[in-house]
C-alpha cells in the first residue's frame, strides 16, 4: 500500500468522514479553513489518489464522484506497522494533556468503573 502525503491524507479523511461518494466541491468545502485550495489543485490531488488506488472515480452527470477503495482503519493499520509506531507502542502520552489514558483501560476495567461510579453515586 502506498503512503499518503499530508494533503492527500487530509482529502482522504474528508472522503472517509463523508461515508458516501463525494464530489470535488465537497472536498474543497471540507478542507476550507485548513487548506484553502483552488478546485484545480483538489482535482489534481484527487486524480493522483485515484492513480494510487485509494479512490475510485465515477462519472455522474457533469461531475466526478469519488469513493474510497481503502478503508480508514485499513490504511491506519498499515501506517501503524512502521517501526517507530511499534517502538512507541502506537501511543505516546509523555507530552499530551489527555482526558484519560485510553490505552490503560480495557473492557473489564470499564465495567468495574461503571460499578464503582454507581456505588459512589448511590451513596
Amino acid at each position: 500500500m502506498k503512503k499518503l502525503g499530508d494533503a492527500e491524507l487530509e482529502i482522504m479523511l474528508a472522503v472517509w468522514a463523508a461515508g458516501e461518494p463525494v464530489s470535488s466541491a465537497y472536498v474543497q468545502e471540507k478542507l476550507r479553513g485548513s487548506r484553502d485550495w483552488a478546485l484545480p489543485a483538489i482535482l489534481t490531488s484527487l486524480s493522483r489518489l485515484v492513480d494510487k488506488g485509494f479512490l475510485a472515480c465515477e462519472k455522474r452527470g457533469r461531475g466526478n464522484w469519488y469513493r474510497p477503495l481503502i478503508s480508514e482503519s485499513d490504511y491506519k493499520a498499515a501506517e501503524g506497522r512502521g517501526i517507530i509506531d511499534r517502538l512507541y507502542g502506537s501511543s505516546f502520552t509523555g507530552m499530551v494533556a489527555s482526558l484519560y489514558n485510553g490505552k490503560a483501560i480495557d473492557r473489564d476495567d470499564l465495567a468495574e468503573l461503571r460499578q464503582y461510579l454507581d456505588t459512589l453515586e448511590g451513596k
Binding site: T93, Y100, N101, G102, I105, D106, D109, L110, E112, L113
Partner: peptide, 26 residues
C-alpha cells in the same frame, strides 16, 4: 466514563502494565 466507552478500538485487555493511569486513576 462515557467518553472512555466511546473510544474506538478499546482493547480487550491491557497487554502490559506499562500503561499507567488506568482503572485506579479513574
Amino acid at each position: 466514563l462515557a467518553s472512555i466507552h466511546r473510544q474506538k478500538g478499546l482493547r480487550r485487555a491491557v497487554l502490559s502494565t506499562h500503561f499507567y493511569g488506568g482503572k485506579e486513576v479513574m
